[in-house]
Design a protein around this nucleic acid. Sequence first.
DNA 1: ATCGGCTCGCGCAA
DNA 2: TGCGCGAAGCCGAT
Length: 445
Amino acid sequence: MDERRLHALNDVPYSSGPVVYWMSRDQRVRDNWALLYARSRALEYRAPLVVLFCLAERFLAARPEQYTFMLAGLRAVEEELRACGIPFYIETGDPARSAPAFVERLNAGLVVTDFDPLRVKRVWRESLAAKVRVPVHEIDAHNIVPCRAASGKQEYGAHTLRKKLNRLLPEFLLPVPSLKKFNTAQSSSSSVNWERVYRAAGVSGEEAERIGMESGPRAAERAMRRFFQKGLDDYSWARNDPSANGQSGLSPYLHFGQLSAQRLALEISRSGSRSRDDFMEQLVVRRELADNYCLYNPRYDSFEGIPDWAKKTLDRHRADVREYLYGRDDFEEARTHDPLWNAAQKGLVRRGTMHGYMRMYWAKKILEWSASPEEAYETAVLLNDRHQLDGRDPNGYAGIAWSIGGTHDRPWADRPVFGMVRYMSFKGCASKFNIRRYIESIEND
DNA sequence: ATCGGCTCGCGCAA
DNA sequence: TGCGCGAAGCCGAT
């Protein structure tokens, strides 16, 4: 593994004891740098290796559907780890307490965890690193070019990060070694009490059917193959047409780490598809830009985090008359005057997803029809976190920041409410795609 | 149908 | 210090 994936969260040296991989963002066994690193440390120290997952109840407004999606994936993680002779544990309760308690109970000697720029995850990791007297190593298993290696500061736009990524990509876009069986004398007979876990998450397991999307590493692999066979070649022209089915739909798998971006990128880059470059732009540049934004901007999910020019211009339009004015419940229940917006919102609530192009329109209209930019921002973040299967993710926060706050964008002609933040209109959508077909596709779903 | 202007600031060249 | 240029657009002029 490239050492640039490693970030030590304290500088305690290893003395003795088992290696714990605290799995969090990257919920997979295959193609997981953090697990590979933990395994090689365990072999080096001749120590046992275990994997821990800490289940946080009510994580960032997550709904039962999202827990069900995640837990189905974790059941597969348990199976695959068992096949490799690695025990898997799930702890419930506040991870800032349950993780250190687990580490102490086990007398662990090293904790390895994966990288996630979200504040709540940083609090968990840092409280662990402060509480335990063992080394805590963070491994960026999510990004292809590790976030901290790509850039040491918040990037201004895609173009500034793109250059840096392209320079480093040849060093990082390589096959991930496969995980070999972990052969030690330790027993791997542990098994998770799933009934207890489901109860702690407050889900029955039936919610998955309502969303209608399979979960887990095998489903992710199937979805990827399906996209390669029919979808990838047309991606360039179809992706911005919400009435077509032109996007990959892989985002929930990437969000929960059930699918490795590195594997996907490697296959795409070798594919020779005519849409290769456009897809790689989304998968690599835009994804890593979102992580960069959240890592270096602690206000990534609020009005406070947007660029100064956008703050100023939105502030100047604070008193502008709003032609339509809605509150959070109106938005959540899709009770606006705009059938296009309502359709996007209804589809989101029903299926946990929204077309990428509509995500921009959706957020910009929340700005247009809310009493203040702050209120709009809060509404967008809450509804995105609550309903998107891939919510609670840097991509979502960066998308809202772009739509409402001009982050990673440039100023445009001054107009009511938006100021110089880029505007999007119903008319524009009508000229770009078949609105009626989009609405019908959601109503008939 | 096509085109330019809108407007700020980063990063690089000079 | 100047200059080119930037996620997905909009609008009015031609």
